[in-house]
Design a binder for these strands. Structure first.
Lengths: 113, 113
DNA sequence: TCTATATTTCCAGAATTATCGAACCATATG
DNA sequence: CATATGGTTCGATAATTCTGGAAATATAGA
């Protein structure tokens, strides 16, 4: 998941553009590759399981998390590569390779000078 | 705009998590520091001015674009620093400093092994 | 098999976001 | 001042997303 199309970028962006999902994802990042059971995430975030499930599914569709069954618990883990892929996408497509040293003060356009 | 809080990150993420806004922002990035008049962006994106205005305002609130008046035209330009700030936020908070070499296959948790 | 646990899916209602025409504001120019 | 141009704001409607309880699914264990 290296995020090549803008659709993929939008999927990842909107997956993270939500309070609860960003919090869940950060929790999983912190948990590392071992991941965390859905229930644990729900507890730590203090939200009802059905709501959390909705958000985790959203993250999974965007390729940001992976799901593994272990007995009767489902373990979610962060897909670091996708997060990095999104960061790379931003750097390439939204910083245009330029230095990114904020210089957004256009003072002369449509005027020759 | 270095994006320190998660609120700021969510604002930037959701600003870019929309087809038209991402397209508009990319256009402004491509245009460089000189920026582009709102009307030009509307033309290139083929959308009614009021719709575009709505989206540009959204990008501006998130700190992703700057607005400058030049006569009767309003020129929008990308704030590269914010885009980079978002990329940095992702790298720091969503990749956890680790190598990011996808390793999301938790096979032993809750079991000693 | 019956029961308990972990979680998801379903569904309906609430909340938020997007769309776009019409009216409005600001600036330029005759 | 009158008029034209570039854009925004308003407002009503449509579309999408979020929320959370109830019912359903999957697995484990007695």
């Amino acid at each position: 998941m290296s995020i090549s199309t803008s659709e993929a970028a939008i999927a990842a962006l909107s997956a993270l553009a939500q309070e609860h999902r960003l919090a869940a994802f950060r929790l999983l990042v912190e948990a590392g590759p071992e991941g965390l059971p859905a229930g644990t995430v729900a507890d730590r975030l203090g939200m009802p399981p059905s709501s959390l499930s909705f958000h985790l599914a959203h993250l999974e569709r965007a390729g940001l998390v992976a799901k593994t069954r272990l007995g009767r618990t489902l373990i979610y883990s962060a897909r670091f590569a996708t997060a990095r892929g999104l960061a790379d996408y931003l750097l390439e497509n939204c910083c245009g390779g330029r230095s990114c040293a904020d210089a957004a003060v256009p003072e002369r356009l449509a005027k020759g000078a």
